[in-house]
């Protein structure tokens, strides 16, 4: 677990490609974890996630060091990572239905 240099964001595991905003991250803020630095391209509300690197469509979104879903579109580093660009992989009865048709 690591806190960004300004204490605004928390990365829960080294392998995570998203970090959690602990307080509101304003557009243009730099979020720095050691050698890794991203600039917030939009405002991130507390509790919401910022992409720490570009995540391609279909790629796993990793938080707590575990897969928490996959990107539905390309998520640019520094952007808000949430339901508009991430879907769950598990509990997807809708996909099971689509597959059976």
């Amino acid at each position: 677990m690591a806190l960004s240099s300004d204490g605004l964001a928390l990365r829960l595991a080294e392998t995570d490609n998203v970090a959690v905003a602990l307080r509101r991250i304003a557009t243009g803020s730099s979020i720095v974890f050691g050698d890794l630095a991203v600039v917030a391209s939009e405002e991130i509300a507390p509790g919401h996630k910022i992409a720490l690197r570009t995540i391609d469509a279909g790629e796993a979104v990793v938080k707590y060091g575990e897969t928490m879903g996959r990107a539905t579109v390309r998520i640019a580093a520094g952007s808000h990572a949430h339901v508009h660009n991430i879907e769950g992989i598990r509990g997807r009865g809708d996909l099971a239905a689509a597959g059976s048709r």
Partner: peptide
């Protein structure tokens, strides 16, 4: 959920969970 042909995310995480920053069931 598969038998009902729905994504569990329709009900869980709930709208308030999502507003609070939780994106997926996982």
């Amino acid at each position: 959920a598969a038998a009902m042909h729905v994504d569990i995310r329709g009900g869980n995480p709930a709208p308030g969970n999502i507003a609070g920053g939780i994106t997926t069931l996982e």
